[in-house]
Simulated scan of single mutants.
Amino acid sequence: MDPLAHRTMIAQVQVERQRLLPEHEEATRTTIDMLRTSTGRDDPASVPYLNLAYLLGVKNTYGDDKLMALALSVANWATTAINDLAHHTARTPQQIIDHYETDIIADRESPT
C-alpha cells in the first residue's frame, strides 16, 4: 500500500473508531449475550444460525452503526480469546489460527 493510501486509511479508522465509541458498552453487552447463547451448544450446527439471528436483530433494530460496533466487539473478543488460548497452550496465535484454518479446509474437502 502506498504511503498516502495508508495514511488515508489510518485517518478513516481513527474517525470511525471515535464515531463508534459511544456504542462500545452496549456492543460489549450484546457480544456477551450472543456468546452465552451460542457457546456450549449440543448442536454446533445451530451456532451460525444463532449468531446470524443476533446480527440481523441488531441490524434491523438499530442499524448499521450498531452492527459495525457489534462486529468490532466480536472481532476484539475473538482476538483476545485466540491470544489467551495461545498463551495457555504454549502455542503462537498464528498456530491457533492455522489449526482452525486447516480444520475448515478439511471440512470443506470432506464428502458429506
Results as ranks from 00 to 15, higher is better:
residue 79 T to Y: 04
residue 89 T to A: 02
residue 45 A to F: 15
residue 33 D to R: 10
residue 60 N to L: 07
residue 77 W to S: 09
residue 5 A to Q: 12
residue 46 S to F: 12
residue 89 T to M: 02
residue 74 V to A: 13
residue 68 M to V: 14
residue 15 V to R: 04
residue 72 L to M: 06
residue 1 M to L: 15
residue 88 H to V: 14
residue 90 A to W: 03
residue 105 I to V: 08
residue 109 E to R: 05
residue 73 S to Q: 12
residue 82 I to Y: 01
residue 5 A to C: 14
residue 57 G to H: 06
residue 108 R to G: 05
residue 14 Q to Y: 06
residue 112 T to I: 01
residue 34 M to I: 03
residue 99 H to E: 01
residue 103 D to I: 08
residue 24 H to P: 03
residue 31 T to D: 08
residue 63 G to K: 02
residue 41 R to K: 11
residue 69 A to C: 04
residue 68 M to Q: 07
residue 1 M to E: 12
residue 40 G to K: 06
residue 32 I to M: 11
residue 62 Y to E: 13
residue 31 T to K: 06
residue 87 H to T: 04
residue 65 D to Q: 15
residue 51 N to Q: 14
residue 48 P to V: 02
residue 52 L to R: 08
residue 67 L to F: 05
residue 29 R to E: 07
residue 47 V to G: 15
residue 75 A to F: 04
residue 17 R to L: 06
residue 90 A to Q: 04
residue 46 S to T: 12
residue 107 D to E: 13
residue 52 L to I: 10
residue 54 Y to L: 08
residue 102 T to H: 10
residue 81 A to L: 03
residue 61 T to Y: 02
residue 96 I to H: 00
residue 74 V to N: 02
residue 85 L to A: 01
residue 91 R to M: 01
residue 24 H to W: 05
residue 43 D to T: 07
residue 4 L to I: 09
residue 36 R to M: 04
residue 101 E to S: 11
residue 47 V to M: 13
residue 21 L to E: 14
residue 93 P to I: 02
residue 22 P to Q: 04
residue 18 Q to A: 10
residue 111 P to A: 09
residue 64 D to P: 04
residue 68 M to F: 10
residue 112 T to D: 12
residue 70 L to Y: 02
residue 18 Q to R: 15
residue 4 L to F: 09
residue 66 K to W: 08
residue 18 Q to F: 08
residue 48 P to S: 11
residue 36 R to E: 05
residue 88 H to C: 07
residue 7 R to M: 13
residue 17 R to G: 11
residue 66 K to P: 14
residue 108 R to E: 12
residue 58 V to A: 03
residue 61 T to M: 10
residue 5 A to L: 11
residue 64 D to N: 08
residue 57 G to E: 14
residue 98 D to C: 02
residue 107 D to I: 06
residue 112 T to S: 15
residue 81 A to K: 02
residue 55 L to F: 11
